[in-house]
Design a protein around this nucleic acid. Structure first.
Lengths: 247, 247
DNA sequence: GCAAAAGTGTTAGTCTTACACCCATGA
DNA sequence: TCATGGGTGTAAGACTAACACTTTTGC
């Protein structure tokens, strides 16, 4: 990528992705440490090609960072404060470091373009964390899963974006039956319950939870899972998308 | 307004407003017939100043068309298809008519800017229809309230935008207690019920509805309203925003 | 007094929540 | 046989939906 950013992409409009994963009873988010700046972290983001829909742009950005296709993703809010980026505390440092980092790629025009005021469309994505091999973007030193309860300090308003993404996730989890996007192909009922308890940050009664989930009629019961633990082996389940089996 | 559109506003990003009003048991939307085009209708919209937040831009656009401040408004979705406007069936006509309409205001550069591909942020607004004196925008021949069930054919994807606005309104009506923004200062319970029945397009049981609404603890009961009808006079109510009186 | 419509109460049904019990598993 | 945790059943409570009855108003 180079100066033709200025020609290829829509100006002053970006996409930031809150990529949720679930592991060890923790909700995690994929965040990058940038090559520039001093220990500067932020959400994976990108720009929108002039010839590309915002949904395709988001899917492309996600693929770049996770190498996955067909990720569940959804826009949830636009962040459009007038001081986004331009008046950010980090802007001066970013401008300087971009110049140092690669003066050929990032000439004055490009840097001005990149550090102008931006309106940002927030998307959240739900992935099976085990399937993701995080790939750093062109400006990322590293890209890592971080616990949502233990995030590093993030640039700009990225913490606020994550907060809103979690609100949207909670709001849609039941209505759109999204949770299974965060689980592997097969899972136990306990896995589902721990996922829900993590997302909502509150406990659920075991039997009632099972009843509620099974009543959704979206799970297929498979064989038992023998773990070697000295207790009854739990059933495995698989999520069935098309509700052809609707009762 | 003139060529400095190109300098003042963010390019390729617009705001369209779905302004809801309620009258005669009908949900209505404020739409404009444009000066250009042939009987071309669309949503009140506008651009975002480079120095202005999207919320302030939406409020400004609303004020321009309704002369009201402090309107309830909320963003609900971004419309970002790659073919918005550029590949619209109306684009050629709009370009030609803009040139004819005012060749001084709208030179080639401006027309190109205005008919480029646009990403649009949808806001919906809720107003007391009696307080609004609709004001045509610079490109509007007329601006009128139209029944949502009897809309003229609209440009681009504006019908789709209204559909999504209604979905968002329904989704938020109870959760955020929005309905009273569509009613005058004082109203009867029947008014509220008719509003709800119109929005959800289904009937509610009178007694249960009253109980549900009163249980919200956001209404203050005022004097009775004597209409001259030969039946019991209904109470008037007023919406109280701050729930200081919370039981 | 009467029709119309507002106000209120009461019951039946459904859904949610809490408690209880039994069963499979491997040491 | 025992501790552990999984599967399931049932009853109490809360909420919702349906029905019924009374009251006010102006003719």
């Amino acid at each position: 990528m180079n100066n033709n950013k200025v020609d290829k992409y829509i100006a002053q409009l970006s996409i930031d992705c809150v990529i949720f994963g679930f592991q060890n009873k923790e909700l995690k988010v994929l965040v990058s440490k940038f090559k520039y700046g001093n220990n500067l972290w932020g959400l994976p983001g990108g720009y929108i090609l002039k010839t590309e829909s915002i949904e395709k742009a988001a899917a492309r950005i996600l693929k770049e960072r996770t190498s996955l296709n067909n990720i569940y993703l959804e826009q949830f809010r636009v962040f459009g404060n007038e001081n986004r980026i331009v008046k950010s505390e980090h802007r001066t440092q970013i401008r300087r470091d971009l110049k140092i980092y690669d003066a050929i790629e990032f000439n004055e025009t490009t840097i001005n373009w990149m550090t102008d005021r931006f309106v940002c469309i927030g998307f959240y994505a739900l992935v099976d964390i085990n399937k993701v091999k995080p790939i750093p973007g062109e400006l990322d030193a590293t890209i890592e899963w971080k616990k949502i309860k233990d995030l590093p300090t993030l640039t700009h308003d990225h913490k606020e974006i994550i907060d809103h993404a979690l609100i949207a996730l909670r709001r849609n989890l039941d209505e759109k039956i999204l949770g299974f996007n965060l689980l592997p192909e097969t899972f136990t009922m306990k896995d589902v319950q721990e996922l829900y308890e993590t997302i909502y940050d509150k406990p659920f009664a075991r039997n009632n939870f099972q009843k509620k989930i099974l009543d959704l009629n979206v799970l297929e019961r498979l064989e038992k899972k023998f773990t070697g633990a000295q207790n009854k082996a739990p059933f495995l389940y698989r999520f069935i998308k098309n509700e052809q089996k609707k009762k």
